[in-house]
Write a protein that binds this DNA or RNA. Structure first.
Lengths: 195, 195
DNA sequence: AGGCTGCGTTCGTCAAACCGAACACACACC
DNA sequence: GGTGTGTGTTCGGTTTGACGAACGCAGCCT
């Protein structure tokens, strides 16, 4: 078929990682110590269906996939998001510093969640005086902030919390929120988690 | 059709959150500022299909779903994992401190990933003198460490890295790794990400 | 007005995913 | 050995999801 390029459609890009899914399916089933027959029975799918899926063939319906996830107690994400480990160091003066309206607020992205994504990790440096207000991000985002040094008012704009070093706060990022340094050289870690 | 209940199958448990998926689909399309027709065209699916999906009907095939995710630039996880926001504060002296062999090493769990899980967030406090060596966790775990204060040797046991305040390192957690404070009152944030 | 181009929805048709049964194989038990 | 129960695979038949065309509607231009 000559490796056809999707000329018309723009995207069409990444095909569904059926092999990967099949592998996970097999592995998780083994981990649970269940037979294909048993899993199929519990999930309420024909074992023929499961058999084909585990051999990497087919194009399962969401219902089928979901039933299997529930049965195997696997978050659907694990089936679809492929894993990839590695080692990476970013020095204090490194990191892609994000554009910031205020000069006394710096955010360095340390770990951007690659496509197939979940969380970004930022290092924040802020000086007192200016309030860093963030507009709501997309729904489902949760932000975690751990204050490393200094002092800051953090959290939902509606109900900010004053943090001292070591304090931790988590709040929904899809609501207006802020970060205001109360002392010089206030530093924090921000984890933005897009579920 | 009589709303037949799958009496035989044991599970039948959590149904597929089609309404939620539909909502996300609609919302993300709006966010991208694209028409239903356009998205359907780019994704290579019939617009009738997309229309039905966006109205919460149907049971899409993985291929279809995937194509839409790619087109809308949405990690499949976002479609399937339901969101749940909330606010939570943990003070510096709070948090469930984990049992630790060494007295000069403390780890407080700040945010345990709930079932359907992805990441745990810890606050580390360590004093110099003892090396905190961790046995490998399960495969696919990635640990992120950001040093808040002090100085530490962190990372894979095979190739540790010396971190100063603000430095960041990420490494696979399924290999032997360590955390060794080099200065008094060394503090860090540890994010354990189980993919 | 009239025609046109975009939108999103609804309607038949066809291919394919799902199912159940039949199958080949392995192992334990009588 | 024969029989039984387990495994995972392959085979027709049926349900159903995806497709394309037709539809109703709104805005815009001639």
């Amino acid at each position: 078929m000559a490796q056809e390029v999707p000329a018309t459609a723009s995207a069409a890009s990444a095909k569904v990682p059926m092999d990967s899914i099949a592998a996970v399916l097999r592995r998780e089933r083994g981990r649970a110590g269940l037979s294909l027959t048993e899993v199929a029975r519990r999930a309420g799918v024909a074992k023929s269906t499961l058999s084909q899926l585990e051999s990497g063939n087919g194009n399962p319906s969401l219902e089928t996939l979901w039933a299997l996830c529930v049965t195997l107690d696997v978050p659907p994400s694990r089936l679809l998001d492929p894993p990839r480990p590695r080692v990476q160091v970013i020095r204090a003066d490194e990191g892609v510093t994000l554009a910031s309206a205020q000069a006394d607020y710096q955010a360095a992205m340390l770990s951007a969640s690659p496509p197939g994504a979940r969380r970004d990790i930022y290092r924040l440096s802020a000086e007192p005086g200016a309030v860093r207000a963030s507009d709501p991000h997309m729904p489902g985002v949760v932000e975690h902030v751990l204050l490393a040094s200094g002092r800051a008012r953090v959290g939902l704009a509606a109900e900010p919390v004053e943090l001292r070093p070591g304090d931790y706060v988590a709040y929904p990022g899809d609501l207006p929120h802020l970060f205001e340094a109360l002392e010089p050289s206030t530093r924090a870690v921000l984890i933005s988690e897009h579920n």
